[in-house]
Simulated assay, not measured.
Amino acid sequence: MDVLSDVISAMRIGVPHSSHTRRIAPWQDHFPAAPGAGFHIVLAGSCLLVPDDGAPLTLRVGDVAFLTRGVGHALTAVSGEIEAETVLLCGAYQLDPSRTHPLLDGLPQVLHLPARLGHDAAVRATVDLLASELEQNLPGSSSTVIALLDVLLLLILRTWLGETSHPATSWAAALQDPGIATALRTMHEDIARPWTIPELAAVAGMSRATLTRRFTALVERAPLAYLTWWRLTTAARLLRDSEATVAAIAAQVGYGSEYAFSAAFKRQHGLAPGRYRVIPERSLRTATK
Rank of each mutant, 00 (worst) to 15 (best):
P56S: 10
P56I: 11
T58I: 14
L59Q: 05
V61T: 15
V61S: 15
F66D: 10
F66N: 09
F66G: 05
L67R: 08
T68A: 00
T68R: 00
R69Y: 06
V71F: 10
G72I: 04
G72H: 02
H73G: 03
A74E: 04
L75S: 00
L75I: 07
V78R: 04
S79N: 14
G80F: 06
E81P: 03
E81M: 07
I82F: 03
I82P: 00
E83T: 10
E85R: 04
E85L: 12
T86I: 07
V87L: 15
L88I: 09
C90H: 07
C90Q: 13
G91I: 00
A92S: 14
Y93G: 03
Y93K: 08
L95K: 06
L95D: 08
L95Y: 09
D96H: 14
P97H: 05
S98V: 13
S98L: 09
R99M: 06
R99T: 05
H101T: 03
P102M: 06
P102K: 12
P102H: 11
L103T: 05
L103C: 11
D105F: 06
D105K: 08
D105W: 08
D105L: 13
L107T: 07
L107I: 09
P108S: 02
Q109L: 08
V110E: 00
V110Q: 02
L111Y: 01
L111Q: 01
L113R: 02
P114T: 15
R116A: 15
R116Y: 15
R116I: 15
L117V: 12
L117H: 13
G118E: 05
G118H: 06
H119D: 15
D120Q: 09
A121M: 11
A122M: 07
A122N: 11
A122F: 06
V123K: 07
R124K: 13
T126V: 12
T126H: 07
T126Y: 07
V127W: 00
V127N: 01
V127L: 01
E133T: 05
E133Q: 14
E135Y: 14
E135F: 12
